[in-house]
């Protein structure tokens, strides 16, 4: 019987983990230890519900309600001087908690501080676009949709960004295998020749970069070229072609290859 593998996370797993191993935590510090962050958090808390806030590796992390994201971003930009949205993406926690954690990485140049706004959404929950607050969210949200399938409401141009428009599936989900699902593996064949060609082409020559040395009409391995149209069968020995001019090598007048010696003793 085949061993059971979980389907909700098909990413690589460590082959061995000590069963008594408890992973340590990156230390979290109280927000009050930093005056600037404490003031920022107070301003956010005055208007919105904050479920958790701490400082980790010199940056403040604030967990908010996903419904408030647009208003929080507006507050950060207009009042708290966070003038850049450096990055925004999601993290797949579907297997463990049934949804995504979305983070917004903020930078304030005046305060020289970096802040991370985070929230948790269920898998089918949509989020509000912030691309009208920070223009850079435009592409970041498109990438988030492309990679995770997180639906963003109110985005001006919601299309896939890295994958082709007609792609199926979202590659960064933990359920998506590293080498692609069936759709991904047959994408080119399906698109160019149609699905019915799958059985004709077969999985072994699906790879366009594959080199077949018996294929005389396209490419053979370097040094093992065969004549155009020559018939070859699979059992034939390899025939490396030596590059040599017909008249022998230019400028070498008298060389008898039968008399030439291959030196084996390197100290000779």
């Amino acid at each position: 019987m085949r061993a059971y593998t979980p389907k909700d996370d098909v990413q690589k797993k460590s082959y061995y983990t000590d069963r008594y191993y408890v992973a340590p935590q990156v230390p979290k510090f109280d927000v009050e230890t930093d005056d600037v962050f404490a003031a920022d958090l107070k301003a956010i808390k005055a208007k919105f519900k904050v479920s958790e806030a701490y400082i980790q590796v010199e940056q403040m992390v604030v967990y908010i309600n996903p419904k408030n994201i647009h208003a929080v971003m507006t507050l950060l930009k207009d009042e708290l001087e966070y003038n850049q949205l450096s990055e925004c993406s999601a993290i797949d926690f579907i297997a463990a908690r049934g949804g995504f954690e979305v983070f917004y990485q903020m930078l304030s140049m005046n305060k020289r501080k970096r802040l991370r706004i985070k929230f948790f959404i269920k898998q089918d929950e949509a989020i509000q676009s912030v691309s009208d607050v920070y223009r850079s969210a435009d592409w970041a949200e498109r990438e988030m949709y492309d990679m995770y399938g997180v639906i963003v409401k109110g985005h001006p141009f919601m299309k896939r960004i890295l994958m082709p428009d007609d792609w199926e599936g979202h590659p960064l989900l933990k359920t998506y295998p590293l080498h692609g699902d069936e759709f991904a593996q047959w994408y080119e064949v399906d698109k160019i020749y149609g699905k019915e060609a799958r059985s004709v082409i077969g999985p072994e020559i699906r790879d366009a970069a594959r080199v077949d040395r018996y294929d005389t009409e396209r490419f053979a391995r370097l040094g093992h070229e065969v004549d155009f149209g020559a018939k070859f069968d699979e059992n034939q020995a390899e025939t490396p072609i030596k590059y040599q001019e017909d008249e022998g090598v230019f400028m070498i007048k008298k060389l008898d290859s039968s008399e030439s010696v291959t030196i084996t003793d390197r100290d000779r």
Binding site: S14, Y15, Y16, Y21, A23, P24, Q25, V26, K28, Q56, V57, Q59, V61, S86, E87, Q105, R114, R116
Partner: peptide, 14 residues
Amino acid sequence: TQGMRPPVGEVYVP
């Protein structure tokens, strides 16, 4: 063979 196991947490380094 197994790789290092960093502590649980997150970091953004520019």
